[in-house]
Amino acid sequence: MNTEHTILLVEDNPKDVFLVQRAARKAGITTPLQVVSDGDAAVGYLSGDAPYGDRAAYPLPVLVLLDLKLPRRSGAEVLLWIRQHPHLRRLPVVVLTSSRQYTDINHIYDLGANAYIVKPPDLDQLVDILTTLNLHWITYNEKPQFDMM
């Protein structure tokens, strides 16, 4: 496993964070998982604003797991911001959310999400999902080049 990479989890529900982290652990994922709990924090982290200025402590992620229903700035807004960002626009973003509403799905794909996954109530399924995501995006996927900030 490549430990140099980082996954950013944008999730406001600490229970969900816990369950995801647990599932990641169960899936044997060693990639560091950074967590921010709202949309603004996600944008701040990606921008390198305080308190995330130190890129050694808060490295740029190779994958963003993005919830949609977030305080302050919604997941859709964060996604839009990333896609319009001159340097980060190619960053892989997987939406991980509770909603299965079709209008949401279409809208999020229109904004440029790389995948849309509904959080499963079943823990085993969550482990499966994280295993798959890790294999797909961290292990096998060729990372895009980011323009220097």
Partner: peptide
Amino acid sequence: VSHDLRAPLRTMQGF
């Protein structure tokens, strides 16, 4: 409903 009502259910089941 699809978000807020489900989230606690899901975590409830998960925990």
